[in-house]
Each structure stands twice: as structure tokens, then as C-alpha cells.
Amino acid sequence: MNLKEMQELINSCEDSKAEILSKMNDLSPILGSDSAGQITQQYASLKEEYDRYSYRIDTIREIMDKTIKTGRPSLGIGKTVKITLPEEEWTKISQIIEAGQAASVADYFRQLHQNQCQ
């Protein structure tokens, strides 16, 4: 089941909960006058069904939270660095990036660091 299908299922469960809640609200005013207990049983049954839908929604949301992966995987701890270089050096770095040897300025300096550490 993909995320879209999970969301559609949540929406369907939410609609069902709303219908059940409406029925429960209709029964609430007459609960006390139910001498045979049928309305009370019906209300309890609706409450159980409502709780089952709530549980399903919570379970699906937990699965979605575990499934959703936002952004790219972390490469490490990010820190802001300001580097001053002559214009010619920035031009060389830009050419390296344009040639596809680095994905970005950050990637260029990451590669430079990795090469120094080897």
C-alpha cells in the first residue's frame, strides 16, 4: 500500500467516524429513557465501532510516519563556513561544478576535504 492509498484509507475512516458520531449524537438525548436497554446497547456498539476506526487511523498514521523519508540522507553535521578566495579561484570552482566533477560548492569542498584526509 502506498502513501496515497494510506491517506485515502484514513479519509474513508474519518468519514465513517463522522457518520458514527452523528448516529451517537442522535441517540444521546434518549439514552436515559431507554428502559429496555436497546438504545444503550446500540450506543455502546457504535462507540466500539468508532474506537476501531480511531485505532485504524492511528495505526495507519504510525506506518506513514515510519514510511515517509524526507530529504536526502544526512551526510554529517552541517556547519556554516565562510571562505574568502580570489575571483579566479571561484571561477575555477564554478568550472569544476559545471563540468560535473562536483555537484555543488559544498560538494567541491567536501571532496577536497576527503582527498586531504586520505
Rank of each mutant, 00 (worst) to 15 (best):
Q41L: 10
P73E: 14
W90K: 01
L112M: 12
F109E: 00
K82L: 06
K82A: 03
L31A: 06
K23N: 13
C117Y: 11
A102N: 06
Y53L: 09
N115C: 14
T80W: 07
H113N: 10
D51V: 14
P73G: 05
S45M: 02
D15H: 12
I57A: 05
Q38G: 13
A103Q: 09
R61V: 00
S28A: 14
R72Q: 10
D65R: 12
K47Y: 13
T91M: 11
N11Y: 08
S35G: 06
D34N: 04
I83S: 04
C117P: 01
L85W: 02
N2Y: 01
S45H: 02
E89G: 02
L9F: 08
K92F: 07
A44C: 07
P29Y: 07
S28L: 15
K92I: 05
D34P: 05
A18N: 10
T84M: 11
L3C: 06
S16P: 00
T80S: 12
Q118W: 07
D51P: 04
T70E: 06
I93P: 00
S104K: 05
I68V: 14
C13I: 01
T80I: 12
I57V: 15
L9C: 07
L9N: 07
D26Y: 02
E48A: 13
G37F: 07
R72K: 15
I68P: 01
K17W: 04
L31P: 01
D34G: 09
L112H: 05
L46K: 01
D107H: 05
Q42Y: 02
Q118V: 12
T91Y: 09
L3G: 01
R110D: 02
Y108H: 11
V105A: 00
A18Y: 08
S35N: 08
E14Y: 05
Q42T: 07
R110C: 03
I10L: 06
I20R: 03
L27I: 05
I63D: 07
D65C: 06
L85T: 01
F109L: 03
D65Q: 10
Q114M: 11
T70K: 09
I57Y: 00
E89H: 03
F109G: 00
Q101Y: 07
P29E: 11
